[in-house]
Every structure is written in structure tokens, then in C-alpha cells.
Computed example of a mutant assay.
Amino acid sequence: MELKIGNVRLENPYILAPMAGVTDLPFRLLCKEMGAGLICMEMVSAKAISFHNKNTEKLMEIEEKERPVSMQLFGSEPDLIAKMAAQIEERPFDILDLNMGCPVPKVVNNGEGSALMKNPKLAAEIVRKTAKAIQKPLTVKIRKGFDEAHSNAVEMAKYLEDAGAAAIAVHGRTREQYYAGKADWEIIRQVKEAVSVPVIGNGDVTDPISAHKMMEETGCDGVMIGRASRGNPWIFRQLVEYDKTGNIPERPDVAELKAMILRHARLQLQYKGEYTGIREMRKHVAWYTAGYPHSAAIRRRVNEIETIGQLEEVLESIPEKLDRNSREYYNIMTD
């Protein structure tokens, strides 16, 4: 199944969601290798770009082999966003996305992210000016609404389409919900029926079965995978394999899990150096090992590591063929 957004053709409709502190360059490369149809970067502040912020510059690094890539901006000033979009358009991203769904207080309190759900006309002005300022496809990520009493995703989507959005991603939760509760797929279906541009569904997709269920129930053109990809880049391989064969590959065994963690860690070192890279790996290892026996013991050990060598020692102590429910395994992991 292909998906076309503007003039950008994706090999499949499965998209890595933009997640602050998660979808950095190393993780994006892994998800691309596993088959993601589109890779979304961490959101970047348009204002920070205008200030030539060094950390922001690092966030905007792109590798040719991860393309097609979507770069995401956030802000609330139409002229500034349009100007910054034009300024960075020469960078090797394929799609520019505008974040109108982030629920974090420091973003919302600035009138940015999901705060724009409360002002569809301002949101449309941002899209209109930005779409005119660049040649690349412009997409927008929104939520169901700001709160349950103001579930205006359909109205918002119509404004955004009219303003020039080439596709719209809809997270089926309100800002008030953050990531709690159940995502409302019905609102995704309503948006899909209300606009003619591609609609990408987001929320509660954890495996190929739920991805296909979302597409069947909502008619959405693509599926965005967020939290279910953390520590699980294999989810994209599963989605692609399921489309091809109808079979869902088994969860990675311990050997593949360890190999992926090490590959991720080495990419972290390559792009960020050992001090930052290994410390950032601590949270990733927690996600990778979640659900495996005695993962709490692994996390305790990993939270103290400072070098790649120490990480290798922890991973080497996990037997690949030992019964993970055995006393011996428990003793090794709590040593």
C-alpha cells in the first residue's frame, strides 16, 4: 500500500510519529531500516531557528538514507513560521509539518501546539502563509480538540485544507487527555469524510492488527505510530510483513534485542559522543526491555552506566538461550 503526500510518494502508509526526545537521528535511522514509510523528526521551534540556537541546529540534522523525512515546526506567529520555513527549505527534508497537537504546558502556555486548536482561524493563517512560502508539501498534526467540550478536529481540518495543507494527521485524543484514556477513532473517520487530502490516523496503534483495524474503521490513508515504536523499531517490519504475507513476525529474541540495543548505542555515540549518547540510552534500554522478564533489574544496572563498555557488560550478562524465567537468569540479572 502506497501513500502520496503532495509530490512525495511513500512506499507504505506507516509513519513514525514525531516525539520530542525520542525521534532523534539515531532512532530514526533504525526505524527506517525496519521499513517505516515516512520518518518524522522531533519538533523544532520556529523562534529558536530565528535565534540560530545551536541545539536546534543539531535537531535539524538529516541523513540521506533516512528519507523521505518530515521536519516539524511549531510556533504561533504566521509570518515568523513562514519566514523560517522558507529559510530552511533547502535542507534535505521532503515534507514540512506544523505541530498543532503538542499538549505540553510550556508549549500550550505560549499559544503553540494544541493551543492552536482553540483558534482555527489563526491556525489556518499559519498554514496559508507557510504553504505560500515554500514549494515542499505542508502537512499539519492536530488533536481531537482542546478538551472534550470542544472537539473541533473536523472544523479545524476543513480550515487547514482550505489554507493549503497537503495532509492532516489526527490524534484521537484531546489536549486535556494528553496520552491517557482511549483514542477516539470516530473523530478520525469524521475528518477523513470531511476533507479530500490524505488523513493520517494516530492513537492506540500498537501492532499490525490495530493498524489495519484503524484503517478499516476510519478509512484513513496512513497510520502514525508513536509510543508503540519506543524500544520497538521492529513494529515497522511487522506492519510491512503483515501486509505482504498476512503473518505477524514473532517478537525479537534476546540475541536480536541485544544487537539492536548495541546498534542504537553505537549510533548515539557516532552522532552525540559517549557522554550524552550513553546517558540518553538509559531510557531507550528501559523501553527495549519492557515486558521481558526481570526488566526492572536491567534498568537498575543500566541507569548507572556511563560508557559503551559498561552497556556491553550488562548485555553480555543476559544469556541468549537461558530460560528467562529460571532462577539462574534471575541471579544473573540481580547480581
Score class of each variant (00 low, 15 high):
Thr289Asn: 10
Ser76Lys: 06
Lys182His: 13
Glu155Gln: 10
Glu186Ala: 12
Leu269Thr: 03
Met100Glu: 05
Gly37Asp: 05
Asp335Asn: 14
Pro103Asp: 10
Ala149Met: 10
Leu315Asn: 09
Phe146Trp: 04
Thr289Asp: 09
Asn99His: 07
Glu66Lys: 04
Phe93Glu: 05
Arg173Cys: 02
Glu11Tyr: 07
Leu322Ser: 14
Gln72Ser: 04
Leu122Trp: 08
Ala115Cys: 08
Arg300Thr: 07
Met34Phe: 13
Leu160Lys: 06
Arg173Asn: 06
Asn109Gln: 13
Arg327Phe: 13
Tyr288Lys: 10
Lys121Glu: 15
Asp204Asn: 11
Ala20Phe: 07
Ile142Arg: 00
Glu61Cys: 11
Phe93Leu: 09
Ile261Tyr: 02
Val104Asp: 02
Phe146Thr: 00
Gly181Glu: 01
Leu80Ala: 12
Ala165Ser: 05
Phe27Asn: 01
Glu90Pro: 03
Lys32Asp: 04
Ile15Pro: 01
Gly101Leu: 02
Arg28Asn: 07
Val205Glu: 04
Ala183Thr: 07
Lys58Asn: 13
Leu3Met: 04
Val240Lys: 02
Lys272Phe: 13
Gly203His: 06
Thr206Glu: 14
Gly277Thr: 05
Ala82Arg: 03
Ala290Tyr: 08
Leu10Phe: 07
Glu274Asn: 05
Val170Leu: 01
Pro293Phe: 13
Lys47Ala: 14
Ala166Thr: 03
Val205Trp: 04
Arg67Tyr: 03
Arg173Ile: 01
Lys58Ser: 12
Val314Ile: 15
Trp234Ser: 11
Lys283Gly: 07
His212Thr: 13
His264Thr: 09
Ser114Ala: 15
Val195Glu: 06
Arg282Val: 11
Val22Phe: 09
Glu161Ile: 06
Ala20Cys: 11
Leu30Arg: 10
Gln177Glu: 09
Met100Asp: 04
Asn55Cys: 11
Leu59His: 07
Val154Gln: 02
Thr289Leu: 10
Ala165Trp: 01
Tyr271Phe: 15
Gln310Gly: 02
Glu2His: 11
Asn12Ala: 08
Lys182Val: 15
Asp184Leu: 04
Gly35Val: 06
Val44His: 03
Ala131Met: 08
Lys32Ala: 03
Pro137Thr: 04
His150Gly: 05
Leu267Cys: 02
Met100Gly: 00
Arg327His: 12
Gly172Arg: 00
Val127Lys: 01
Lys141Cys: 09
Tyr178Asp: 11
Asp162Ile: 00
Ala17Asn: 06
Glu42Tyr: 10
Thr130Met: 07
Leu10Gln: 02
Leu269Ala: 05
Thr174Lys: 01
Arg300Pro: 02
Ser295Gln: 15
Ile88Trp: 01
Ala255Lys: 15
Val104Tyr: 05
Lys54Trp: 10
Phe93Ser: 06
Val154Asn: 04
Ala180Gln: 15
Ala82Ser: 11
